[in-house]
């Protein structure tokens, strides 16, 4: 999802890192409510854990390659509540997910119908904290049809909704997404509108929806802009995420932005709300988030130990020396 802008010579040069940002946020905990770990490596999990990310939400999304059958959807959803959840636990990070039919693939009507049929199998599962990410991409009639159908599903299951807002014609797409949610009788406090920018944030907050910002290079928000947004709008109703996926993105976007906010003298309370607590408050309305689990997953070795035996010792991943030439 990157690189739609014109590249200049400057973009191709190595970027000098601002060293030491991690010192700035030592001891803080972060919650990244939108990150597609399926597309990421174990190095990312380790780096996130080191930077203080304690829990994440992985929304169901488009995999880059359109799916052609309902079974691949089912396997994907099953992996979000199965394999990926386990993989995450090995790094001491609590993994939640949202389940839904993404807007792009809603345009394949025959398949979309089949996917709608299997969604109820997954939305009641443990650790499913919402319906998402759903909404508009090209803003077609079929996208609207399945967006509406999934809003009904969320209402019935009493689950929060995580809305993806379109890249193109964003402002109108965002307004329309909110209008339709209201039309279906959803409480704005149960709806997280994602991928906001300076143009959309005011209306989203004014109407009582949660405003999520994706810190993602080139196509979404940069974190210097984010600092300005928080200076202007405060921390109420605002959360940030990385939406890191298979494109050029950054799974450390949340802790990095926290560090930058701190460097710009934004208060610790505001930083905590934007990078941790607001996302928990919003998605815990699913009844599926218990912050005690953030610590439990860190102690997977001990907590799953049973009567002193090795049974169920899930096993945190051993560390490897990344800069060593030896691989053992």
């Amino acid at each position: 999802m990157c690189c739609s802008h014109q590249l200049s010579e400057k973009d191709l040069q190595p970027i000098t890192a601002q060293a030491g940002w991690q010192e700035n946020i030592k001891g803080m905990r972060f919650f990244d409510p939108h990150v597609h770990m399926t597309a990421r490596t174990t190095d990312d999990y380790q780096a996130m854990a080191d930077a203080g990310v304690v829990a994440i939400i992985e929304p169901a999304f488009w995999l880059g390659q359109p799916r052609t059958g309902v079974d691949t959807f089912r396997d994907y959803y099953a992996s979000l509540v199965g394999w990926e959840r386990f993989r995450s636990s090995q790094f001491g990070i609590k993994h939640y997910c949202t389940i839904g039919l993404n807007s792009k693939e809603a345009n394949n009507e025959k398949l979309a119908e089949q996917v709608m049929e299997i969604l109820p199998l997954f939305i009641y599962k443990e650790g499913v904290v919402g319906i998402g990410e759903i909404g508009f991409d090209d803003q077609t009639a079929l996208e609207e049809k399945y967006y509406r159908a999934q809003l009904e599903l969320a209402k019935e299951a009493n689950l929060p909704v995580q809305i993806h807002t379109p890249h193109r014609d964003k402002k109108k797409g965002t307004q329309r997404s909110m209008d339709i949610a209201i039309e279906h009788g959803l409480d704005p406090a149960m709806v997280i509108v994602d991928h906001n920018n300076e143009e959309t944030v005011k209306e989203v907050l004014d109407r009582g929806f949660w405003a999520a910002f994706t810190i993602y290079p080139f196509t979404k928000m940069g974190n210097e802009r984010m600092v300005e947004v928080v200076k202007q709008y405060g921390s109420k109703g605002i959360m940030i995420n990385s939406a890191a996926d298979w494109g050029i993105s950054d799974p450390l976007a949340v802790p990095k932005t926290a560090a930058l906010m701190k460097a710009h003298n934004i208060s610790i309370q505001d930083i905590e709300l934007v990078t941790y607590q607001n996302a928990i408050t919003a998605f815990a309305q699913s009844g599926q988030i218990d912050v005690a689990d953030f610590d439990a997953v860190k102690n997977i070795d001990q907590s799953l130990d049973y009567n002193g035996s090795r049974v169920l010792r899930g096993g945190q991943q051993p560390r490897i020396a990344k800069d060593s030439i030896f691989i053992r």
Partner: peptide, 9 residues
């Protein structure tokens, strides 16, 4: 089995 999450499995 086919649609199970970790604890269900």
């Amino acid at each position: 089995f086919l649609a199970a999450e970790m604890n269900e499995l």
